Amino acid sequence: MKNKLRQLDETFLDLVVGIVFFGVVSAILGMIITRGDFLYLTGAVAGMVVAIGLVVHMTVSVKRAVHMDTHEATKYMVKCSIIRYVVMLLVLVIGINGSLTCFLAIVIGFLSSKFSAFLQNPIHRYITKRILEE
């Protein structure tokens, strides 16, 4: 398992670890604040899973675009960005039909990828590096 983790790009692994970390923390805090609302937990898990999926899609897209010429890569990246935005919009529409707490949890789950990117260096230093060393 550790060999498979070492083969992944370290930044990608940092982002995924950060998304899971912030997703779990926001789910726990949200469950305390909402006094155990199951729809909040469902939204938090859905937001976290979709955020991980979006990071995976973005990583694969960038790796493919690197091997294309400039014009083709630009068109490809715009198309991939639109796909990610449409997926986010669909998940948010489904969440708003569930309840307001589910919608807010999904938004917080999406934002966990932003927090993870912002704090990538400390996440790498204190969490991911220790996972890979053992």
Rank of each mutant, 00 (worst) to 15 (best):
S26K: 04
Y76E: 11
L100I: 15
A51E: 15
Y40M: 11
S112C: 12
V93D: 05
F103P: 00
I52L: 03
H67E: 14
L111D: 09
D69Y: 04
I32D: 00
H67R: 10
H67P: 00
H124C: 04
M88A: 13
V60M: 11
A51Y: 07
I52N: 04
G43S: 01
V91Q: 04
A27V: 05
C102E: 12
V87F: 00
L119H: 06
M48W: 01
R84M: 15
A73L: 03
I82A: 14
L89K: 05
G95K: 11
K114Q: 09
G36L: 00
L39F: 06
L104S: 05
T42I: 11
V55E: 13
A65Q: 06
V87W: 00
V93Y: 10
I123W: 03
A44G: 06
I83T: 09
A73H: 03
V93T: 11
H57F: 08
A117R: 09
A65V: 06
Y40I: 05
F118Q: 09
G47L: 07
V62P: 06
K79V: 06
K75F: 06
S61H: 02
L104V: 11
M48Y: 01
T34M: 00
L39H: 03
F118T: 14
M48P: 04
F38N: 11
L92S: 05
V45F: 04
H71F: 09
L111G: 12
Y85Q: 09
F110T: 07
T34H: 01
M58S: 14
V66E: 14
A27K: 08
V91I: 13
G98R: 12
S99Q: 11
Y40E: 09
R84N: 15
I106A: 04
I83N: 05
L29H: 02
R84Y: 00
V93R: 08
L119C: 08
M48D: 07
F115W: 13
A44L: 02
S112G: 04
T59I: 00
A65N: 07
M68F: 03
R35I: 05
V93I: 15
R64I: 11
G95V: 04
I28Y: 00
F115Y: 15
A27W: 02
V56M: 12
A117D: 11
I108Q: 10
D69S: 07
V49E: 06
L39D: 10
H71A: 12
T59W: 09
G109F: 02
I106C: 06
V93C: 11
Y85M: 15
L119A: 14
V78G: 06
R84K: 13
V45M: 10
A46M: 08
P122I: 05
C80D: 15
V87R: 01
M48V: 05
I82F: 03
I33P: 02
M68Q: 07
V60F: 01
A44W: 01
K114P: 00
I106N: 07
Y85K: 07
L39K: 12
A117W: 05
L29I: 12
A46W: 00
V91R: 04
R35S: 13
V91M: 11
M31V: 04
L41V: 10
V56H: 05
N97P: 00
D69E: 14
L39Q: 11
T34L: 00
V107S: 09
M31N: 12
K79L: 13
G109N: 10
L92D: 04
I33A: 10
I96V: 15
I108A: 14
R35G: 07
D37W: 01
T101A: 09
